[in-house]
Nucleic acid binder design. Structure first.
Lengths: 217, 217
DNA sequence: ACTGAATTCGAACGAACGTTCGAATTGTCG
DNA sequence: CGACAATTCGAACGTTCGTTCGAATTCAGT
C-alpha cells in the first residue's frame, strides 16, 4: 500500500503500536466493501446502512474507522490513485524509448483498471463528489499523473511528427482508457494486455504518423 | 424537438388542445433548469427542493409536469439523445466518403456536446441512474447510436487497413469524445470544430494507417 | 483470571428526502 | 362577469439519511 492507512484514524483515538496492523487490516476490509457499494450505487446513492450491511459491521461501528462518509470516499480514491502512480513510476524505470514508455503507461493504466474495476470506477465516476481539502488532495495526485503523461508525449514529439496538441492528445488518451468502465465485459472482451495493445496501436499511429490524412477538412 | 414533450403529461390529466403549447413551454423550461441542477449536483445529489428553487416553481407544482424525479431524468436523457441522433442522420445524408462520414460523426457529437454541455454531461454521467423501462428506452437509443458508428467504421474498414477491432475502436472513440465533459474549459480550449479536427486526425490516422507501428510489443 | 484499552453495537437524534392532497390562484371562453 | 378547467402552492405525510453516544463486548498483556 502506498499510504499507511493508519493515517486515517480518528484524531483523538488512542493507538497502541501492537494493534496497528489489526486496525489497518479491518479498515482495509471495510474500504474494499465500501468500494463495491460505491461502485454499484454511486457515492450519493449509497447509504451508510448499505455499507454497514455489505461489510457486516454495525452502522455505528463504521464510525470508529472514519469520521464521515466523505472521508471514506477520500481514502478509497487516494489509495487507489497513489497506487497506480507508484506502480507506473516503477515500471517506467530503466525504459528509455519514448514509444515503449507510452505503451507502458497505457498497459499499466488498463491492467490496474481491469484488476480493480470497482475502485477505478469510483475514482473515475465520483471525481466531483469530494469537496475542499479532500478534493484538493486527490486533484494533486491527478495533476501529477497528468503531468507524467504530458511528459511522455512531449518526449515522443521531440522525435516524430510534431503536429498535434499535446493537451488534446493526452486528454483523448485518458478518455479512451477511462471510458472502459462503461463498457468492459469480461465475458466478451479480451484481457488488459490485448486491449492495451489495441489502444496503444490506435493512439500511437494517430500521434506519430507523418503523412497527413487524406481529405483534409 | 424530436419527441413531443406533451407525451410526458401525467395520465389522468385533462388536456385542451389550446393549452398544449403553454404546457410544453413550461415543461421545457423546467427541464432546462433541472438539467443544470443535475449537472452540478448529480442526479442522486440533487433534491426536488433544489429543482424547485432553481426553476422558481413550488415543490408541489413540479409534480404537475411529471410524476417522479426519475421520469424527469428520463425526459432529459431521451430528448437529448434523440436530438443528437436525429441531427447526425440529417448531416450524414448525401455524404458518401467513409472518412468524411466519420469526421461528420465526430463533429456532430462534439458540437452538440459543447453547445449543450449540461445536458450531455447528465446523459454521459447519469447513464446508470435510470431503472427498468426508463433505462431500457434510453439504452435502445444508445444502441442505435452505437450501431451507426460501427457501420461507419466498417465502411472505412472495407477500403483501408483492416487490422483493428471495430468494437475497441468505436468504444475508444466514444471515450475520447465523452470524456470531454471532465476537462473542457471554454477559456482555455478551442471550439468544437478545432477539437473535432484534432480528434478526427488522431482517430483516423490511428485506424487507417497501414504501416505497423515500430517496436511491436 | 484480571484489567485496562480497543473495538463493536443498539438506539436514538434532527434534518432532509420524494411524494401527496386539498385548497387557492390563474387563465380561457361564452 | 361567471363558470369551468388549467395551473400553482402551503403544509404535511412517512421514510431514510448521516451521525452521535453511552453501554456492552472483545482483545492483549500480565
Amino acid at each position: 500500500m502506498a499510504t499507511p492507512l493508519t493515517a486515517a484514524r480518528v484524531g483523538s483515538q488512542p493507538r497502541a503500536a501492537a494493534s496497528a496492523s489489526r486496525y489497518d487490516r479491518r479498515l482495509a476490509e471495510i474500504l474494499t466493501h465500501a468500494t463495491d457499494v460505491f461502485c454499484k450505487k454511486g457515492y450519493e446513492g449509497a447509504s451508510m446502512r448499505d455499507l454497514s450491511r455489505e461489510s457486516g459491521m454495525s452502522l455505528a461501528g463504521l464510525y470508529y474507522y472514519f469520521e464521515s462518509k466523505e472521508r471514506l470516499l477520500f481514502l478509497i480514491q487516494k489509495h487507489t490513485f497513489s497506487t497506480i502512480v507508484q506502480r507506473l513510476k516503477a515500471r517506467l524505470e530503466g525504459v528509455n524509448d519514448p514509444e515503449e514508455r507510452i505503451r507502458i503507461f497505457i498497459l499499466n493504466h488498463l491492467e490496474y483498471f481491469l484488476a480493480n474495476q470497482a475502485a477505478m470506477k469510483v475514482l473515475s465516476h465520483e471525481a466531483e463528489a469530494l469537496k475542499n481539502s479532500f478534493a484538493a488532495e486527490v486533484a494533486a495526485i491527478k495533476r501529477e499523473y497528468y503531468r507524467i503523461c504530458v511528459g511522455l508525449l512531449d518526449d515522443l514529439k521531440r522525435d516524430r511528427g510534431p503536429q498535434f496538441s499535446t493537451r488534446i492528445a493526452v486528454l483523448s488518451l485518458f478518455g479512451m482508457m477511462n471510458w472502459i468502465y462503461t463498457w468492459h465485459n469480461p465475458r466478451v472482451d479480451a484481457d488488459a494486455a490485448s486491449i492495451a495493445g489495441e489502444m496503444g496501436d490506435l493512439f500511437l499511429r494517430g500521434v506519430t504518423t507523418e503523412t497527413k490524412v487524406r481529405k483534409e477538412r
